[in-house]
């Protein structure tokens, strides 16, 4: 479904942000993209929906080439790819509802969106998503009145409104506290499972990535240096991605962590020891 082939991005400054990346993300797969700051994670996912123009290579979504599209065709391709942002990127001064409805911009004509006269079908859908992310009573609140976690939920609802076949998620938890981070990640993964959505999630937090993603891709200096299941993410692999450091503490997370945190600290503790032995 999403296939990148030999994707390269060189900025006008000469920096090679993404170098010869080839990648396939099948339907319904949640993939985490990890790597140090400046490894090209953000650039890579922005190349997919061409917020950043790739220098060479190809991006195929459901068998359609995206890199050659222009104008209206590009906008039609973009609405198939929902994007969720690091600092939420909500339109701060608009209401929650307007923000969610803005996910339909690619489908609804200018004057209808200008007058905020969306088709009732979209409005029903927006109410459903707001209920799903738990923000029903915030419909008419302005986006800048919400907390970080609430804002990201609005961002998720907006991305879903696009009826995407893939989610591009850029550091969804970077501005959130640890508990909210888990809730948001869990929500994204649940929604992907419900709707058979593929997702590429850029994430700094290796622990969260292991906890929620089915597949992990490590990026270093614009190139893929690791691609595999979370189980195979050994200290050696992390050293390859991030450089020399004592990684054992980072990996001592367990599979049962995605369950509510009160599953039992003791069990988690022993589990983590097992994990280290496996590693």
């Amino acid at each position: 479904m999403l296939a990148l082939h030999a994707l390269t991005k060189r900025y006008p400054t000469g920096d090679l942000a993404v170098h010869n990346v080839s990648l396939e993300v099948p339907k319904g797969q949640v993939m985490a993209l990890i790597g140090p700051s400046g490894a090209g994670k953000s650039t890579l996912i922005r190349c997919v929906n061409r917020l950043v123009e790739p220098t060479s290579g190809s991006v195929m979504l459901d068998g359609h080439e995206i890199t050659a599209l222009g104008g209206a065709a590009l906008r039609r391709a973009r609405r198939r790819m929902g994007m969720i942002f690091q600092e939420f990127a909500l339109v701060e001064r608009l209401t929650v509802m307007e923000n969610v409805l803005s996910g339909r911009l690619g489908y609804v004509g200018f004057w209808k969106t200008f007058l905020r006269r969306y088709p009732q079908r979209d409005i029903d859908q927006a109410f459903r998503f707001l209920e799903r992310v738990g923000l029903t009573e915030f419909v008419d609140k302005r986006a800048d009145a919400l907390s970080g976690g609430q804002r990201q939920r609005v961002g998720i609802a907006r991305a879903l409104m696009q009826e995407p076949s893939i989610l591009l998620v850029d550091e969804p938890t970077a501005a959130l506290d640890p508990k909210t981070s888990r809730q948001i990640m869990r929500l994204i993964c649940e929604l992907c499972a419900e709707r058979e959505l593929a997702a590429i999630i850029n994430i700094h937090d290796v622990g969260l990535a292991q906890m929620f993603a089915a597949r992990i891709v490590g990026l270093c200096k614009g190139e893929i240096v690791f691609d595999g299941s979370p189980r195979n993410l050994t200290p050696e692999a992390l050293t390859l991605i991030y450089g020399e450091e004592d990684w054992h503490a980072t990996i001592k997370r367990d599979e049962d962590e995605p369950e509510p945190a009160d599953a039992g600290a003791g069990a988690g503790g022993t589990g983590s020891d097992d994990r280290q032995l496996v590693a």
């Binding site: 209401t95 509802m97 307007e98 905020r116 969306y118 009732q120 409005i123 419909v139």
Partner: peptide, 15 residues
């Protein structure tokens, strides 16, 4: 109220 409910259908208007 921007949100009105009529016969089970929730309508939304900006103002």
């Amino acid at each position: 109220m921007p949100v009105t409910e009529a016969s089970g259908v929730k309508a939304w208007q900006r103002r």
